[in-house]
Design a protein around this nucleic acid. Structure first.
Lengths: 174, 174
DNA sequence: TATTGTTATACTCTATAACTATA
DNA sequence: TATAGTTATAGAGTATAACAATA
C-alpha cells in the first residue's frame, strides 16, 4: 500500500526569489498534493479509497443516475467505473438496478450501509478540515478560500466545477 | 501521453458548509493537483518531465554529489534514479563521473546543455508563477504564501523542507 | 446501427530483490 | 562483509478496444 504516482507533478517548482517557499506554484503543489494524500489516509481508515468516496458522494447527490452518467461527471472511463462499482457493490455500499425503460442502463443507489459510511467519511473529512485550518481565525480562513478561488480561476479550474456537471475534459484523477 | 493517477488523491473532499468550494482541504487539493499538472506541461514543452527537472535542479544545487545522495534528497529509490539519470545523460543534460577515491560511486554534473535547459525551465516556471498569481497584488500574494506556510505546518510538511535535505520518509512523488 | 455496460488486454509505472564491482 | 549502482521482475493501475445485450 505504498504507491506514489502523479501525472503532471511538481516536486520542484520555480523559485521566484530565494527558496521554493517563495513560489506560490511550488507551495500550492506541495500543500495540495500532501492534502490529497492525507485525505486518502482519512477515508482509508474507513476502508475507502478517494475514488470510492467520490463515487459514493456523487451517487448520494444524484441518486438513481446511470453508471455512465456518474462516470461522466467524475471523468472516470467506463471500464474503470465497472471496477469501482463492483467494489462498492461487493462491499454492500451501493447497488445496481435495471432501469425498466431501458434495460441496458444500470442506475446506482446507496444502501443504508453506504449512506452511513458516507456520512462517517464526510465527518472525518471535516475533522481533517479542522486540522488543516488549525490556528487560522475565521477571517483568515475566509481570506485563504477567497485567494484560492482567484488562483483557481487563473488556472482555468473554477472550484465550483464539481457540484453540477464537470467541466469539459479536465485532467483526471482516478 | 494521458495517464492520471494519484496515490492519496482528493477528487472530492468534505464539505463544511454549502459546496466543496467552502472547504480548504478540497480547494487546496484541486488547486494543488492542477498546479502540479500544469507545471508538468510547462516543463514538458522543454521535453522534460517534472522528475527530470527535479533532478537537474538538485544536481545544480549540489554539483558533484553522488547519484545516491541526490536520490535520497528527493526520496527517489535507487533503481528509479538509474532510469532518470540514464535518460538525462542520454539527452546530454548531465554526466556521471567516477569518483577517484571510491570507484563505486558516480558523481553527477550538469553539462552546458543541462545548465542552459535548467535555466530555461526555471524561467518557464516563473512565467507560470505569473499566470497563477495574475490579478493578485503583491500584498495579497504575500498573504497567500504566509497562509500556505501555516497550513503546510499543520500538515506536517514545512515548505522549507526541500532546499537542504528532505524530511524523513515523506510521501514520494516519483 | 447505436448505446450501456462488461471483459480482455496491452501499457506504463513503480519498487523489490538479485547481481556486479568495488571497498 | 558491506555499499553504490545496475538489472530483472513482478505487481498495481489505467485505458483501449473487442464484446454482449438491448435499443
Amino acid at each position: 500500500m505504498d504507491k506514489f504516482s502523479l501525472d503532471g507533478n511538481p516536486s520542484l517548482h520555480g523559485t521566484s526569489e530565494a527558496g521554493p517557499g517563495n513560489s506560490v506554484g511550488f507551495s500550492l503543489s506541495q500543500v495540495g498534493v500532501e492534502t490529497a494524500r492525507q485525505f486518502g489516509e482519512v477515508v482509508g481508515a474507513l476502508d475507502l479509497e478517494p475514488r470510492h468516496f467520490a463515487v459514493l458522494h456523487a451517487v448520494h447527490r444524484h441518486e438513481g443516475q446511470s453508471q455512465q452518467s456518474i462516470g461522466d461527471q467524475l471523468v472516470i472511463p467506463a471500464s474503470t467505473m465497472v471496477a469501482i462499482v463492483d467494489h462498492l457493490e461487493g462491499n454492500g455500499l451501493l447497488e445496481r438496478r435495471h432501469q425498466s425503460s431501458d434495460r441496458r442502463t444500470r442506475t446506482l443507489h446507496l444502501t443504508t450501509h453506504g449512506e452511513t459510511l458516507l456520512t462517517e467519511a464526510l465527518a472525518a473529512a471535516m475533522v481533517q478540515e479542522g486540522r488543516i485550518c488549525a490556528g487560522l481565525e475565521p477571517r483568515e480562513r475566509a481570506q485563504l478560500l477567497a485567494l484560492l478561488r482567484r488562483v483557481s480561476a487563473n488556472l482555468g479550474v473554477p472550484l465550483s466545477a464539481l457540484p453540477d456537471r464537470g467541466s469539459g475534459d479536465r485532467p483526471q484523477q482516478f
